[in-house]
């Protein structure tokens, strides 16, 4: 009985007793969730357009952030370093299209998936070779990102909002809206959606798959850079960061591999669920549940909606 009380009732009593702490936990979870959502977004973009499950998305985040900081350390002014990093991500997109996607087109998915492992280790090697393997500090100030925190008095206590977290949330929202407009309103966006729907039909009307792949991988590269800056500002920039890509998997299971809104909502659910779980239920099992709770949440959803929250229901023709 005691254990049931601790699991089912006590956490909610705690939430009610200290609502300020509850709000704080939700906010922390929200910000983490926004970053998960961005990583998942990179996956979804590439998966939709080229049918590739891009294992390298996590390392692209690290690589982009590392390149940015590395270029700054080499003496480039921060704004210029951002531009050059974007250039590097573009070159990377072109190279991946040429060297990996084009020769492997029409091969089974698993081969393309394995190829993204290759990309992962290539990027780790390249990053270490050029910029060294030591963790670096994100150039937060130089990029005019705010520091410090705002304390808001509410619900009989204080809730602390880190300014960098607020900035991360705002930037993520702006970027998601920009991407949505790009996809819905522009001709390139229409072509992208066309490719996502049917490769052969897109080819038949003269849409260049190669061009679309470059655009998509570059877009994923931009998303990776933004994610890398935000994440790097909260911890540091090192190859250890790539494990956050593992957090994208439950987000994708939850949101569906082909749904952009799914990636966003899934990211937020996982982010918030994880923080709530850690804070209120974690102590019951001695903490440290953050690393696997996300998968439990995702699996729970999977039982009820195998296609994910927003994913297309796949009915195989038999």
């Amino acid at each position: 009985m005691d254990i049931l009380f601790k699991v089912l009732i006590d956490p909610f009593l705690q939430m009610g007793a200290m609502p300020d702490l509850f709000v704080q936990t939700i906010w922390d979870g929200f910000v983490t969730g926004v970053l998960y959502a961005l990583i998942a977004l990179g996956f979804v973009l590439i998966f939709k357009a080229s049918g590739v499950f891009n294992f390298a998305q996590g390392i692209m985040v690290v690589f982009a952030a590392l390149t940015l900081v590395g270029l700054y350390e080499m003496g480039l002014p921060a704004p210029l370093a951002v531009l050059v990093t974007l250039g590097v991500m573009f070159v990377l997109a072109v190279a991946i299209e040429r060297v990996v996607l084009r020769p492997l087109v029409n091969q089974p998915d698993i081969i393309l998936f394995m190829a993204t492992f290759g990309i992962t280790y290539f990027l780790i090697g390249l990053g270490e070779l050029i910029f060294g393997g030591n963790p670096k500090q994100m150039i937060t100030d130089q990029l005019y990102l705010p520091r410090g925190a705002i304390e808001v008095k509410m619900l009989g206590g204080f809730v602390q909002f880190q300014k960098i977290d607020i900035a991360a949330a705002v930037i993520a929202v702006v970027m998601i809206v920009a991407l949505a407009v790009f996809f819905q309103k522009t001709r390139i966006g229409r072509a992208l959606r066309a490719v996502a729907d049917s490769h052969k039909a897109a080819l038949s009307v003269g849409i260049s798959l190669n061009q679309i792949w470059v655009i998509v991988w570059f877009t994923a590269g931009i998303v990776a850079l933004v994610t890398g800056i935000m994440w790097g500002a909260r911890s540091d920039v090192s190859f250890g960061l790539q494990v956050i890509a593992l957090k994208a998997l439950p987000v994708l299971i939850l949101g569906g591999f082909t749904s952009v809104p799914g990636a966003i909502v899934g990211g937020l659910i996982i982010g918030i669920g994880e923080k709530l779980g850690e804070f209120y239920w974690g102590p019951l099992v001695g903490g440290g549940i953050e690393s696997w709770l996300a998968y439990c949440i995702a699996l729970g959803f999977l039982l009820f909606r195998p296609q994910g929250l927003f994913g297309d229901k796949i009915i195989e023709r038999i």
Partner: peptide
């Protein structure tokens, strides 16, 4: 050279108008 497919290959998420517009790509 334009074509249609035996098992209709359309852009399912798009409207009729957008589908036909995609034929103007080139």
């Amino acid at each position: 050279i334009a074509r249609t497919f035996q098992n209709v290959a359309l852009f399912k998420g798009m409207s009729t108008l957008d589908n036909i517009m995609s034929g103007r790509t080139l």
